[in-house]
Each structure stands twice: as structure tokens, then as C-alpha cells.
């Protein structure tokens, strides 16, 4: 039989401009950090704000990563995502209150163990609720964005009210575990211990997600499913099960983010998740729908910018992220990192 003509590939020579264009989203973070350094002037203040911005960005990323996957793979606009953040926070904080002996002890291992248990409980409960949420709320409205918005906003309100019923309507204050209170001094700058932990957890989640998406077969199925769901089905995979798995995992990440945010703010309310949704949607949109890397870079930009602007010009802090979104969408209307979409 005849064989196909083989061709030795000739690779295009990309100009420096092309190469910078491809790497631009990744370069935005160090560029913003450098711009912050120039604008702030004082190195210690800049370092404190940078770590604070990175920590905030990491926590927003944890909460946004699940939403971007659900958006990208399932084409579901889930405003109910905020409810999973709030629920995760309340469950996690309840566990932390129950483990008061561990959190008050001056022992880092005991403190970390308490946080891990709180995170585990929050993720399990939000994951279980997400399973029911997908079956009852989301499944009937696949394919209709308007219905998705209406019903998931309704579900958000119902879950928030349920939180009021179970935990009460007042704000709940909490202290961070003993060993994570206060700050360490580095190069003359005070760096909050908890923010350093948040950066570490955020990085772990980012690299963990990348590992799963890039190096495992389930990751291949998810990436392929974003592009062409019919073909993934025709290759023998039950994409619906993958959808449900991604929805549960995404919601569990929201629960994890809720615990981390609760410890960051040291106060929780039923509406905290809803309040976060504006920032989360900004991150998902500027990152590119369905792109975990885009959400990561977008979250860091949002966290850093908010901290720098709040220091330099507090009145502009509220609008800084809307400005960031406007600029990025003018530059790349599909978001910084687009994900191939087929049918």
C-alpha cells in the first residue's frame, strides 16, 4: 500500500514581538510588581503590599479556578458558586471552633492539622451539595444561559438564607490559629504569616490542577471536552460523568477558598461568597473562559492591583479591577488565554 508523503516540518521563525506577545499574560504579573515598586517607592511597604496582593490573588484563584472549569467545560454560568464559598467558610469555621484546643495551642502542626480538617470538611460538604445542585438545579437548564442565571441566582439566595437559619444572621468573628497570628519580618518588611501560607496553598492548588489537566487522562478528557464534547463521547467517554465530577471538584475548591478567605478576613457572613463573585467573574473573564492558567494570572493581577491602588489612591481601589478588566478586554477580547472551542 502507499504511504503518506512525509514532510520534515519547517518551523516558522517568530520575531521577538511575536514571542513577547505569546508570553505577555505571564509577563504582566512581574511588570505590575515592578510598576508597583516604582510607584510606591518605599521597598518595605512595596514588599508587604506585594505579598498581601499575591496572597489575595491566590485565594481568589482558588475560588475562581472551579468556576472557570465549569464555565469552560460545561458552558454553565453558575452564580450559585458564591454560595459554595459561604457554605465552605461556615462549615470550616465551625470545625475550627470545634477544634478550639488545637487552634489555640502554640503548635504549628496542631494548627495546620485543624485547618486541614476544616478544609476537608468544607470540601466534602460543598462537594456533596454540588452533586445535588447539579442534578436538581443545573441539569434542567443546560444550554440556556438566561435560565442558568435566573435559577442559580435563586439557588444562591436560598442557600444564603439556609445559612442564616442554621448559623444565625449575625457576622461571625474568628481568630486565626495561634501559630499563624502576627507577622515575620523580612528585609525590613512585615509579612503576615497567614498570607505566606495562602500563597503556598494557592501555588499548590495551581500546580496540582495543572498536573491533573496536563498529565492525566482525566485531564485530557476535560481539555478535549471543552473543545469538542461530541467527539469525546464518540471516543467512548461518558462526558456527563466528567461534567458532574468537574462541577463537584469546582464547588469543593470554592469551599476550600471560603475557608481560606474566612481566615484571611477573620469574619464571615452568609453573603461573603456573593460579594466575592464580582472579583471572581472579573478573574474568569480576563483570564479567558475555561483557562486555569488565565484565571491564575488574572487573580494575581487583581490581587496585586487592588493592594497597590488601595495604598496609593484609596478612592480608586474600588474601580481599579473594573479598569483592569476594561484594558485587558480591549487588548484581548476573548481574555488573556483563550481555550480552543469546537462545537
Amino acid at each position: 500500500m502507499s504511504a503518506a508523503p512525509d514532510h520534515t516540518p519547517t518551523f516558522a521563525k517568530h520575531s521577538i514581538t511575536d514571542r513577547i506577545g505569546q508570553a505577555a499574560p505571564y509577563l504582566l504579573v512581574p511588570v505590575l510588581i515592578l510598576a508597583g515598586f516604582i510607584a510606591i517607592g518605599a521597598p518595605t511597604s512595596w514588599l508587604t503590599l506585594t505579598v498581601s496582593g499575591l496572597a489575595m490573588g491566590m485565594m481568589i484563584f482558588i475560588m475562581a479556578s472551579g468556576l472557570t472549569l465549569v464555565f469552560g467545560l460545561m458552558d454553565i454560568i453558575n452564580f450559585g458558586h458564591g454560595a459554595f464559598i459561604s457554605l465552605g467558610a461556615f462549615v470550616g469555621v465551625s470545625v475550627l471552633f470545634g477544634l478550639g484546643g488545637w487552634t489555640d495551642a502554640a503548635s504549628l502542626p496542631l494548627n495546620i492539622a485543624a485547618i486541614l480538617l476544616a478544609i476537608l470538611a468544607a470540601m466534602l460538604l460543598t462537594g456533596a451539595l454540588a452533586w445535588a445542585f447539579e442534578r436538581v438545579i443545573v441539569r434542567p437548564v443546560y444550554g440556556s444561559h438566561l435560565k442558568q442565571i435566573l435559577i442559580t441566582v435563586g439557588a444562591l439566595i436560598v442557600i444564603e438564607e439556609a445559612i442564616h437559619v442554621i448559623w444565625g444572621g449575625e457576622e461571625t468573628f474568628l481568630n486565626r490559629p495561634n501559630a499563624l497570628r502576627g507577622a515575620v519580618t523580612f528585609a525590613g518588611a512585615a509579612l503576615e504569616k497567614y498570607r505566606i501560607l495562602a500563597v503556598v496553598v494557592g501555588l499548590a492548588i495551581f500546580f496540582g490542577l495543572r498536573l491533573v489537566l496536563q498529565r492525566t487522562k482525566i485531564g485530557l478528557i476535560v481539555r478535549a471536552g471543552v473543545e469538542n464534547p461530541d467527539m469525546v463521547e464518540a471516543l467512548g467517554y461518558r462526558l456527563r460523568l466528567v461534567f458532574v465530577g468537574v462541577f463537584i471538584a469546582g464547588s469543593a475548591l470554592a469551599g476550600l477558598g471560603g475557608v481560606m478567605w474566612a481566615l484571611y478576613e477573620q469574619v464571615i457572613t452568609a453573603g461573603m461568597g456573593e460579594n466575592m463573585m464580582v472579583l471572581i467573574f472579573i478573574v474568569v473573564i480576563i483570564g479567558g473562559l475555561g483557562s486555569v492558567e488565565g484565571a491564575f494570572v488574572g487573580a494575581l493581577l487583581v490581587g496585586l492591583l487592588q493592594n497597590y491602588v488601595a495604598f496609593l489612591e484609596p478612592k480608586l481601589a474600588l474601580v481599579s479591577n473594573i479598569g483592569l478588566m476594561t484594558v485587558i478586554l480591549l487588548w484581548r477580547p476573548q481574555g488573556m488565554m483563550t481555550v480552543a472551542k469546537g462545537s
Binding site: L220, I221, E227, A234, A340, G342
Partner: peptide, 14 residues
Amino acid sequence: GIFSALTVEENMIL
């Protein structure tokens, strides 16, 4: 029905 964002190898693995 090619998954354009995946490599040839990844298409075959899938």
C-alpha cells in the same frame, strides 16, 4: 473532530 489544542500524541492517547 480533531482536538486542536491537544498534541497528536494526546489525541491518540485519548
